[in-house]
Design a protein around this nucleic acid. Structure first.
Lengths: 178, 178
DNA sequence: AATACCATGTAAAGAGTTACATGATTGG
DNA sequence: CCAATCATGTAACTCTTTACATGGTATT
C-alpha cells in the first residue's frame, strides 16, 4: 500500500495534522496520488499504532484541537525499506476512455460534450501546476531534494499537457461525425 | 463502477467468455482499464443476474467448456444510460512518483535504477501499441466506430510516449547527483 | 519432464468511496 | 444570514488484490 508510504514521506518533510495532509493531497501530493480525509485519518491511526508515527495534541483556543504527527526512526526505516523494493508502473482506470470505447452506443455529440468538459478540467489543472512551477521552482540551481520535488511537478505538468493534446485530437477526429 | 460498463461495452461488440474478456483487458481494453480474471468472472455473474447479459454454455471436447456472454437489450439500455452521465477525470495513484517524492530518504542511484526499469516497461508497451496501430488501423478512412477505437489506442500511445519523455528528463536531472 | 495455455471459479484481506456526524469561527 | 474553513472521526459499502483450487492439452 502506497498511501501509507506517501504519508510517511510527507511527514518526513514536516510534521503535520491529518487535516494538513489532506490539503497536501490537494496540492503537491496531488500530482500523483489521491486520498480523502476519511482514508487519511484511518491510516494515520494505524501508522501510529504500528510505531511509525508519534502523535502530539496541539491545543487551540478558537479552533478545534489538532493532532500533530511526526515520523519516528522506526517509520523512517520502514520508508527506506519500501524504497528499495521494486514497484510496477501504475495501471490506468479511466472512465472517459471506457465511454469512447463504447462510442458506438451513443451520438458523437455526446462524446464531444464530455471531451470538452474534460479538456477544461485538464486545462485548469495545468494552469495551477504552471503557477506552482513559477512560484516554487524559480531558482536556477536546485539541490537533490528540490529536484525530486520538481520532477513530480514536471510529471503533473506533462500529464496534463498530454491530456489536452489528446482531447484536441479526439475532438477534431469526432467533429467529422457530429 | 466502470468495470461493469467496460464489460458491457466489450460484449456489445462481440459476445465472449470470461476468459476472452480477460485477454481483451490484456490488449484493447488494457490501454485504459485493468481487471483480473477473478474480478471479471464475479462481475459477469452479477451482470447476468441483473439481466444485462445472457449466458450460453459452449461444450468443447478437448478443452474446458466455455460460458459465452451476450449483451441483452436491457444491458444495452443500461449502458446507454451510463453514457449520458458525466464522469470525472481519473485520479492518478502512482507509486514510482511517491518514491521520487520521498527521494531524500534514498540515494539517487536507487531512483535511477528504478526509473530505468520503468522506462524499459513503457518502451515495451509503446512498441506493442505501435504494432497494433500498424496492423489494425492501416486504412486511411475510418468510420465512427473505428475512430473511437483508434482514439483509445492513441491515448495509450501518447500516454506511453509521455512517460518515456518524462523518464528521460528525470534520468538526466538525477544524473547530476549520482 | 516441465512449462504454458485453456477455462472456470471461491475466499479472505486490503484499499477506496460515500454517507453520516459534530460544532465553532471567519468572511462576504 | 449563508457559505466556507477548520478539525476530527465512524460505518457501511464497493472495488481490487492475493492466495488457493482444479485438471486436461499442447509445446519445447
Amino acid at each position: 500500500m502506497a498511501l501509507s508510504h506517501a504519508l510517511l514521506a510527507s511527514l518526513g518533510k514536516t510534521p503535520a495534522s491529518g487535516y494538513d495532509l489532506a490539503r497536501r493531497f490537494g496540492s503537491s501530493l496531488g500530482y500523483f496520488w489521491k486520498a480523502s480525509h476519511q482514508q487519511i485519518y484511518k491510516e494515520l491511526a494505524k501508522l501510529s499504532e504500528q510505531g511509525f508515527l508519534d502523535v502530539r495534541l496541539e491545543q487551540q483556543s478558537k479552533r478545534p484541537n489538532r493532532k500533530i504527527y511526526t515520523l519516528t526512526p522506526l517509520g523512517e526505516s520502514h520508508l527506506r525499506d519500501w524504497l528499495q523494493q521494486e514497484v510496477q508502473p501504475a495501471e490506468s482506470r479511466d472512465e472517459l476512455l471506457v465511454k469512447i470505447y463504447a462510442g458506438q452506443w451513443t451520438h458523437p455529440s455526446q462524446l464531444i460534450n464530455e471531451l470538452q468538459a474534460h479538456r477544461h478540467k485538464h486545462q485548469q489543472k495545468l494552469a495551477l501546476y504552471q503557477s506552482i512551477a513559477q512560484s516554487y521552482f524559480a531558482a536556477e540551481e536546485l539541490d537533490y531534494s528540490q529536484t525530486c520535488m520538481r520532477l513530480t511537478l514536471d510529471y503533473g505538468l506533462s500529464y496534463e499537457k498530454n491530456w489536452l493534446n489528446w482531447c484536441d485530437q479526439a475532438l477534431q477526429a469526432l467533429a467529422h461525425f457530429a
